[in-house]
Structures are given as C-alpha cells and as structure tokens.
Write a protein that binds this DNA or RNA. Structure first.
Lengths: 202, 202
DNA sequence: AAACACATTAACCATTTGGTTAAAATAAAA
DNA sequence: TTTTATTTTAACCAAATGGTTAATGTGTTT
C-alpha cells in the first residue's frame, strides 16, 4: 500500500514539474496535473494541500538546480581557469537535462521576488562567495588576468551559460532553423569557457 | 469625443503593458487591466475584442523591442568592433527603459513558440543576417579575429546584454544586495563590448 | 473474518474570470 | 432642439477552476 502511495506521489511530482515549468504557476491547471499523473483531482489535493504548496516544492527543486552549479563554482578550490571550465560544464549538463528551468525560475522570481530570499543561501555559499570573489580580485591585482569586477565576471559566465537555453525557441528560429541547435548547445560548454578565459587572460 | 477615445485606448495599452509584462498572459486579469486604465471591463472589451487580441498587440510591440537592436546590428555597415559596441548600447538603453521585456517575451515564446514565426523576420533582417555573418566569417579567415562561429559570437553578445536584466532579482539578491545594481547595469554596455572584443581580438 | 488505516473516487460547491447585453451618458450633426 | 452616433456603465451569464465531502476500495493487522 505504502509503495503505491509513494509511486502516486512521484507521479504527481513528475506531472507537476512538466506542467508548472512549461506553463508557469498561473497557467498551470490542477486538473491537468492530475490527468497527467493518472489520478483524479481529489487525490491530488489529498497528497498536496493546495496549488501553492505543490508549486513551492517544484519551484524549490528547480531553484536549487539553478543555484547549485554556482555554489559549486564558488566553493571550488581549483585555479580560476579550471573553475570556469567546471561551472560551464556543470550548467550545461544540468540544462541539457532540464531545459525549461531557467525560464521557469526567472519568471516566477519576477512575479514574486520574495520567493528566493529563503532559498538563495544554501550550504556555505556565503563563504564560497567571499573566497572566490577574493580569488578573482587577487588575480586582477597580481596581473594574472585583465581588470574586471569579480561579480561581473561571474555574471558573464552565467549569462553565457544559461541565456541560450532560456531563449532557445527564438535563437533556433533565427539562427538554426535548418540545423540542429541541440547539437550546438550540447558542445557549447567548452567554447564558452574558452571565450571567457580568452577575454580575461593577459 | 474622438480625443477622449484615443486617450482611453492609450490608457488601456499602458495598463495592459504593465500587467501582461509582469504577470504574463495566464496571470493577467482583464479586470485588473481595466482598473489600472481607470475604466470598467465592458469598455475594455469595447476597445479590444478579447484578451487574446489585446495580448497579441502588447506582445508584438515587446517582441519588436527585442529584435530591433539585433536587426540594427545585422544591418550596420560599420566595422565589426564598432558594431559590437553599438548593439551593446542599443540593448542597454532599451532594457533600462523596459526591463520586463526579456522575461515577458521569453516566457510567452516558450509557452507558444508559434507566436514568433510571423514576427521574427522584420525589415530586411534576412539580408542583414547574411551580410554580418559573412563579415564575421571573413574576419576570422583574414586572421583579424580568433576563430569563432559567427552565430555564436552574436548569441554571446546578446546573452551578455540581456540575461542580467532577465535575472535581475536573483543577481541583485546574490551579488548586489547592499549596493546599487541599477547603477551597475546602467554602465555595463561598454564593459560588455570590451569583454567580447577582448575575447575575439588577436 | 473483522476491524482498521490508508488510498482513491464521484459528485459537489464557491469563487473567479472572460465575455455579453441593454441601457444611460455624452458629444456632434441636423 | 431634436436626432444620431459614439462612449461608458451596471448588471448579468456561462464556463472554468481550486478545493471539499462523503462514500468506496484496498490492503494490513488482530
């Protein structure tokens, strides 16, 4: 019995991920989630009190998927160039698996920014931030890389990693209509890292 | 009489822009748009047959704001580095005025990709695309810039320009909580251009 | 097998929402 | 001033939507 319940719960989560991440909170329908999970609406409410509660769980998962590669980068003890290669690859493997996450997260954060304040500071990210921003600053001071604001360097890396996925339908239509944009995205991580490193190295 | 009608129409459009761009199509309420326009719902439907029609107009406007700087870039006859500086500045002045557009457009395109196919090819963008991608390709061949796929170079520029606005609430909370992220964004255009140029120049 | 706890469902409810209608107000035309 | 066309409103409606209730199944325990 318990086994079946767990399966049902997991079915609900899978369905909710799909519906919420493509249609957003406002566009998602509890009925549609129930249908896709192969259950009826009452059972959906039996497992998750209401839409908001279900959404919170899905959103939290998604947000963590976005923030985790960044946290890894900030905590990474490697040298700067290697760290840059690492974060690019982390983001790309995540995004190839969950391409809808960036849009989903950015949009919901936009409609209600207060959602993130409890989620943004996960496991030791504050110290990591301090460490890595310091590392970049020192690399600049030591003349190892060109002058750049550490925060902006990180922001540039993330922009280059995430944006192409968030804007994929437009980019596909505009630049890759008759070719395979997924193939391009699949191998892009290393090229982004090179692009960034090339820009900052002396 | 006619004057008042035009004013009412404009009030509706202003209200619709605000509501649609922050809440999306599904989250927007016709009542809320009417309220903000200072009219009642019946009058709103008197001017715009239904939600979909009103939304289409707002979305089309917004999409053009996104695509226009790119079109300018592609049509620009300047040398490559100057063109890069130009597009960065075009995007930044647009985004400082309409910061909600990227999220709005990307999200709606994501939920219904067919929306763009009629909008994406505006005034002479096809020839511009050919010209500029060719220009970049030649610059690579001539050894003027480092090897890079022309489409990816353009995509990188756009990513760096737009993403920070789309992710502003998160970036603000994470990197600029106690400082002024708007001030940073305001002056970012030239730094992005330098970042890109630095990366590709020999 | 009887009692029990958990899982599932059909039917139902209140509220919200996009949209309509018919009448009233307002300004221009006659 | 009367007529006419346009703008605006209050009241209303049907469908959709999130959520509830009370009964039914289903496997476990005693």
């Amino acid at each position: 019995m318990e086994k079946k319940a767990i399966e049902t719960q997991e079915n609900i989560l899978v369905a909710a991920r799909e519906i919420f991440s493509t249609k957003g909170y406002a566009g998602a329908r509890m009925q549609e989630i129930a249908d896709r999970a192969g259950i009826n609406k009452a059972l959906l409410h039996y497992y998750y009190k209401n839409k908001e509660k279900l959404f919170e769980q899905i959103f939290e998962e998604a947000f963590k998927k976005i923030i985790r590669p960044l946290a890894s980068f900030l905590a990474d003890d490697s040298d700067l160039f290697q760290k840059i290669r690492n974060i690019c690859n982390l983001y790309h493997s995540m995004l190839l698996e969950y391409p809808f996450i960036p849009n989903f997260v950015m949009n919901e954060v936009n409609t209600d920014p207060s959602r993130i304040i409890n989620l943004i500071h996960i496991e030791g990210v504050i110290e990591g931030k301090k460490k890595t921003l310091g590392q970049i600053e020192e690399a600049v001071k030591a003349g190892k890389i060109r002058p750049i604001d550490p925060r902006e360097l990180v922001l540039n890396i993330i922009s280059l990693s995430i944006f192409p996925f968030a804007s994929k339908p437009i980019v596909k239509e505009f630049f890759y209509k008759d070719s395979d944009i997924n193939a391009v995205l699949k191998t892009r991580a290393d090229r982004i890292a090179d692009f960034v490193i090339q820009s900052i190295k002396i």
